[in-house]
Nucleic acid binder design. Sequence first.
RNA 1: UGGGGUGUCGUCAAGUGGUAAGACACAGGUUUUUGGUACCUGCAUUCGGAGGUUCGAAUCCUCCCACCCCAGCCA
Length: 569
Amino acid sequence: MSNSEKSTSTPSDFIRTIIAEDLKANKNDGRVHTRFPPEPNGYLHIGHAKSICLNFGIAAENKGGICNLRFDDTNPSKEEVEYVESIKSDVRWLGFDWGDRLFYASDYFEQFYQYAVQLIKKGRAYVCSLSADKIREYRGTLTEPGKESPYRIRSIEENLDLFERMRAGEFEDGSHVLRAKIDMASGNLNMRDPVIYRVLRAEHHRTGNKWCIYPMYDFAHCISDSIEGITHSICTLEFEDHRLLYDWFLDELAVDCHPRQIEFARLNLSYTVMSKRKLLELVKEGHVTGWDDPRMPTLSGMRRCGYTPESIRNFCERIGVAKSNSMVDIALLYHCIREDLNKRAQRVMAVLRPLRVVIDNYPEDQVEELDAENNPEDPGMGSRKVPFSRVLYIEQEDFREDAPKKFFRLAPGREVRLKHAYYITCVDVIKDEQTGEVIELHCTYDPETRGGWSKDGRRVKGTLHWVSVAHSLEAEVRLYDHLFVKANPADGKEGSDFKSYLNPNSLETLTSCRVEPSLAGAAPGSRCQFLRHGYFCVDSVDSSEERLVFNRTVSLRDSWAKIEKKGQT
RNA sequence: UGGGGUGUCGUCAAGUGGUAAGACACAGGUUUUUGGUACCUGCAUUCGGAGGUUCGAAUCCUCCCACCCCAGCCA
């Protein structure tokens, strides 16, 4: 393999290293089997994408490797079918395929029950009738050991009987729980007789009211992994001290597959939040329009914003996988989507804040169809025709009455190029008598520069985009910015709410934009580059034939803005 | 004197005893009909700190410091 190939292909990280070593040591009969196990209690976000890319990626990189999609649906009070459907479509959209391996922890409820009975019979689990408060009290603290429950000494027969009656629905919610009998003095709180079953009357989105007892995560997860023959159970850092319990259950139970749990650091992205709780709060309180608001870090939001699955996968690959808590700069995400769209997005001209320009020496009724390349990065994308006429719109910010030397755009007496069209020179400025606002420019064009080339070799520094007033289409354009003004909104001052850092300007809606006519009937979700502005996509919810609505995915890099900013300070 | 983890450039992150990869960001420059793209250059004498072992230490040892996670009948 050459160096260049090495740097672009298969990623390497501590998890892949572990798996390669296991393979080398001939563990698991050479199998590599992972799983992505979301709880269907919310929408997937880019943090999940990291996990999806890791689990499905590892499977794909290894010969015969497979990855399951498993819904961890053991808590019916928080889970809904709406979420399972969105999760399935998001994973598919990201570009991954679980084949026929779609599973639900709820499919194993009967098996979990039988394993629990097995534990009771071994004397390793008991029915505890302490209240939730008492259980907490008996658990001890981080620095003091806990106390044993008085119910810990119940006989196996009594436990078996009680547990069966729990399942039969003889007891109230919260009256009894099944607990593993481990060690109330363990320094690891997870080992202080953890609850493994609770009585809970709630309708489950798949099993309905068949059950009134539900297993807890620690009990259900390791068994689910084992049942599915998972070899490497990859999860996030906060489960590190659950690993002891994970292993304890599988060691105590008669199972023939004991997966290895490996933990990695979850993704944090600057200027946004990643916790489901916080995202739900933003949705519920109306700070965003929904889970698919283009400002949300959810996959549905990013999709609506115009992100490509490729760019997100590439991002996930670039951030790497490690164990240190970190905060990735959102600039890397922006780089990934620009890099992708630069190669594939068609260029079009759109004037966001129009300023009328009359070309005095251009014939009144004349219209020319000028050639415009669709993408300078890819000649294969061909070209299109753009109508040019006497009255045009250019961008307001492309004209300045008193322009500094470094301002390469239009100003009184200055000449610029109109992209794909002609050189024009500004000869007059019309202002509103009341406000003094510039409302129209008069220019002359040089007929010898058709297409934007001058025969005499004279050069202009600036090239502007434009549209023909008579031919352009009206459009609404939504400019999005960071949802938060603080890089880490969760890291506020004592007592401050993350929402106090919400960016009041995260959305700017422009309603009188004018776009070139080739955009008529643009398909919802389709992407393009508005020349000199950025990458945009047709909003999949609000855009229609009658009303074009575009979302800005990401702006172009803007070195002029930097120069200007520098000049101000 | 609870347990489990992590500390390498502004941000991620390689590195596993042989003399600090790469990416993003940032700063300069070249090309340019997008102030875009592409390309070039610069950007850690140093790896949380202090000792020690060694010809040689980010990598091994000792001590210290900082930060993260855990006391749901959530996952």
